[in-house]
Amino acid sequence: MQQSSLVDRVGSRALGVFEVAGAIATFGAHAVIEAPRPPYELREILRHAYQLGCRSAPLIITAGVAVGVVLSMHTRASLERFGAEAMIPAALAIALIRETGPLITGLLVAGRVGAGIGAEIGAMKVTEQIDALEANAVDAFKYLAVTRIIALMIAMPLLTIMMDFSGMLGGYVAETATSGMSWRLYFERAFSYISYSDIILATLKTVVFGYLIAVVSSYLGFTTSRGTEGVGEASTRSVVMASVLIILSDVILVKLIFFFYPVVSG
């Protein structure tokens, strides 16, 4: 009897997960279909790009510098054993630009922006503001969700470039403090093993991260219920689900990049 109820619970939980995954996928697909249709809501897209992108810049730059310093210290500790200190800038650049920069930017934005979108749209849902938009003959889905999705897809690559650059800068500060390496030598060595395809593909990957963060958090905002408690839950779940999806999608995207551009894996 107990075994059966356990199976029921696990089965019901699994069905619930599939149901939510299906609903989020439908929500995301609907956004893709609606995006090219008028009205384009350019004003809202720009406003969100500023709110979600520009306002995240201080966090991204600060985190980037810290990550660069830490990565540089770790890389030095490892490469020193093999007498390969000259490779430190290149190793740091490869780690940062190919993977660490995009991934950390994605996770930081999921935390800062994902929570904000989930809470903001959720609060609008429970206070009937979404109904008021609809009553004012405005497509609330397009006005609230599609605009944020597009804005974040634009902002993410720019934030990733900021993260990469500030990380390299942090790495340089740490390296020059330890070995006195010059600015010019550091960046010459850093970019000696990095090609344009490394930078472009890894940065473009974050367009997908932006899409996932905005879709998940908008969906959870739109489906908020149970008042302020529901708003808090939407905010927390937005961060958790967006972070998990970023990590999972990163695995798939890296595999795809290696498949279509084998030179990058070399």
Binding site: A123, M124, N136
Partner: peptide, 29 residues
């Protein structure tokens, strides 16, 4: 949406857009 353009709605709790000023709320439609 075309039908709704000819309606005005006052919700029970007003449902003002809290990211806009009162004037912008009225100007919104």
């Amino acid at each position: 949406a075309d039908v709704r353009k000819h309606m005005g709605v006052l919700f029970q709790n007003a449902a003002l857009f809290d990211s806009m000023s009162v004037g912008d709320n009225v100007a919104f439609p």
